[in-house]
């Protein structure tokens, strides 16, 4: 079955990359299309394909224009590299609906909430006029979806957090946030993989490493994963940390 995607738009991002727009806004159904095209590209890479980077509703394709043209048959000298890549990508787009839906992984992220590990938990609670325990309960009940990774290695952009605990960023960002910190910014929740400055409300910390450059893939989470946060005790937190050593 071929299904045409009238909503798919290809925009050049300079002369060595392009963005394939597969819809507007953030939704699990558009995310499915992004995931499907991502998989198709990695399974059937065109000549000169470098890599693809999925985002909320589009996918950026990096390619090497020189390699694309080197593979070109001599009888099509007037085509540009961009035109060739577009036709390759359009071909793959036709198969988005045919491709098998990927079974989402469910990843549990253990979190030690509050105290020195989650210094903003109380602020988030009082912002919503609920108890810190209630914030934790709502946070651990949400099932989140990792739409994309970006900003830092292994940093998940997630959707699906219960909006009852949506909280604006801190007025003054912290200069340094400890890796593993779990935070809330607006309707988003996320985990910091590296020590960075940041303005998110930090409500807890996970003992897991989100970025692990020695392993393949180098990140704990990947686009398409489903996430559940699980509350752990200080003892459990330290047991996790010990195990890593």
């Amino acid at each position: 079955m071929t299904h045409c995607f009238p909503e798919a738009i290809i925009k050049p991002l300079g002369d060595s990359a392009l963005i394939v727009q597969l819809g507007e806004g953030i939704s699990p159904s558009i995310h499915q299309k992004v995931q499907a095209l991502s998989m198709l590209l990695n399974t059937y890479p065109f000549d000169g394909f470098v890599e693809s980077v999925p985002a909320f509703n589009n996918i950026t394709i990096h390619y090497d224009p020189v390699l694309v043209l080197n593979h070109l048959a001599n009888n099509q000298p007037s085509l540009t590299s961009f035109q060739i890549v577009c036709s390759n990508v359009n071909e793959l787009i036709q198969h988005i609906d045919d491709s098998q839906k990927l079974e989402a992984r469910l990843v549990e992220i253990p979190v030690l909430y509050g105290g020195e590990y989650g210094p903003d938990l109380d602020d988030v609670a009082s912002y919503h006029n609920i108890s810190p325990e209630e914030v934790i309960r709502i946070h651990t009940q949400s099932e989140c979806l990792v739409y994309m990774l970006g900003f830092a290695p292994g940093f998940p952009f997630m959707g699906g957090m219960d909006e009852r605990i949506a909280t604006p960023r801190r007025e003054t960002p912290r200069l340094s946030i400890t890796p593993g910190s779990v935070g809330i910014a607006g309707k988003q929740t996320g985990v910091y993989p590296l020590e960075t400055p940041g303005g998110w409300q930090i409500i807890g910390r996970t003992p897991l490493d989100l970025f692990r450059p020695d392993l393949s893939p180098p990140t704990l989470l990947q686009a398409g994963d489903k996430i559940k946060f699980v509350q752990i005790s200080p003892e459990e937190y330290h047991t996790y940390k010990e195990k890593k050593r």
């Binding site: 890599e51 999925p54 990096h62 290695p153 292994g154």
Partner: peptide, 9 residues
Amino acid sequence: YGSQKYGVI
């Protein structure tokens, strides 16, 4: 190259 989808620059 090849790891930008993981957020690796």
